[in-house]
């Protein structure tokens, strides 16, 4: 079986709504092409036919209210059709079926976090089952983002302070992962050296993308179960490491996106404080107080980043990472990694 191909104009159709969107698009496309050819055709024809010549005068302009009314009112028929059928499909695309699988989506500068119904978390990659409707319940932890998968023809803004929803039903299993783009501009860190897809993935608006894989429903269930189990203990490739927890913490440091703002180089404090010299140090805060960085301090800084703001970082807004996003076991792993960084 080969995956459906896209056309010159449109990406492959991989969701149940896609053919409907494309039919409408192609209808409008041909209406537009015909209208354009008629308008420019008449224009060119008149320009040639009535070109200025010796002894030829322009005909005086007459008036015809009938003609005016015809071309004022007749486009209404087409417009009413476009509006009506566009709205009908839009309603279909807006109302998810009752039996849809609910996946929670969090957009944050510049990563996507997905939470499956069983609590399994994925970041910047998402697997979904073929032939099952998936409802997305989305929110942002910082600025506006927009969830856009061209192959599914869906797009919905992800807004801080409220939920937005969208749904899709994939029709084909994917060989190559599909791309989820962020379609609402969300910036870049100041002074970033590059920000390209190759150099720094998930570092700014244009690289805030995630890989979407469509699998069979059975494989979906198996994988999300596996993901949940794995989220509670260090991954297999940390087995045999002298400090498996710190090894896991190091992996989480990249996979959870901490790396985007926190370096492990003591000299680089951009945009958040470096992790190199945190553990066991006395931390001075914006409000003048200070505390020694212990387990509770780090836990608090992850769960409620604004509770204690390190001096000089008053303008930085780190999103909070809750229990769902970063379970307790993973916080322990990150603490172990920070300890290791001090050794």
């Amino acid at each position: 079986m080969t995956a459906p191909k896209g056309t010159t104009q449109l990406p492959p159709q991989l969701s149940t709504i896609a053919p409907e969107v494309d039919d409408m698009y192609m209808f409008i496309y041909w209406v537009a092409v015909v209208s354009f050819l008629l308008i420019t055709g008449f224009m060119v024809y008149y320009v040639v036919k009535y070109r200025r010549r010796e002894g030829m005068k322009a005909e005086p302009t007459g008036h015809s209210t009938l003609i005016e009314l015809v071309w004022t009112l007749s486009p209404l028929i087409l417009l009413a059709y476009l509006f009506h059928s566009g709205f009908s499909s839009f309603v279909k695309a807006a109302v998810p079926p009752r039996d849809a699988i609910e996946i929670r989506v969090t957009g944050m500068q510049w990563s996507w976090v997905f939470e499956h119904p069983n609590g399994a978390i994925q970041q910047n990659e998402l697997i979904v089952p073929k032939g099952k409707p998936v409802k997305l319940i989305m929110s942002s932890s910082d600025v506006l983002h927009s969830f856009y998968i061209p192959a599914f023809r869906i797009k919905r803004d992800v807004v801080p302070g409220m939920y937005t929803t969208a749904w899709f039903e994939p029709t084909e299993e994917t060989q190559e992962p599909l791309t989820l783009f962020c379609a609402e501009y969300c910036g870049a860190p100041r002074g970033i050296s590059s920000g390209s897809l190759v150099d720094e993935p998930n570092s700014n608006h244009s690289t805030m993308i995630a890989a979407i894989t469509v699998v069979s429903p059975e494989e979906y269930d198996r994988t999300v179960h596996q993901l949940f189990i794995e989220s509670q203990k260090p991954p297999a490739d940390c087995d045999g490491n002298d400090d498996p927890m710190a090894c896991w913490g190091e992996k989480l440091y990249s996979s959870k996106g901490c790396v985007a703002c926190h370096s492990t180089n003591p000299a680089v404090n951009q945009p958040g404080p470096s992790w190199a010299l945190v553990w066991g140090e006395t931390r001075a805060f914006e409000d003048g107080s200070s505390v020694v960085a212990d387990e509770n301090y780090i836990l608090e800084s992850i769960r409620q980043p604004q509770a204690k703001i390190v001096k000089g970082f008053g303008n930085v807004n780190m999103p909070p990472y809750g229990e769902r996003n970063l379970p307790k076991a993973q916080v322990d792993a990150i603490i172990a990694y920070m300890k290791k960084l001090r050794q």
Partner: peptide, 12 residues
Amino acid sequence: GLPLATLITDIH
């Protein structure tokens, strides 16, 4: 502007 005013195509 037509496919942008038409709701379902604008989404894409």
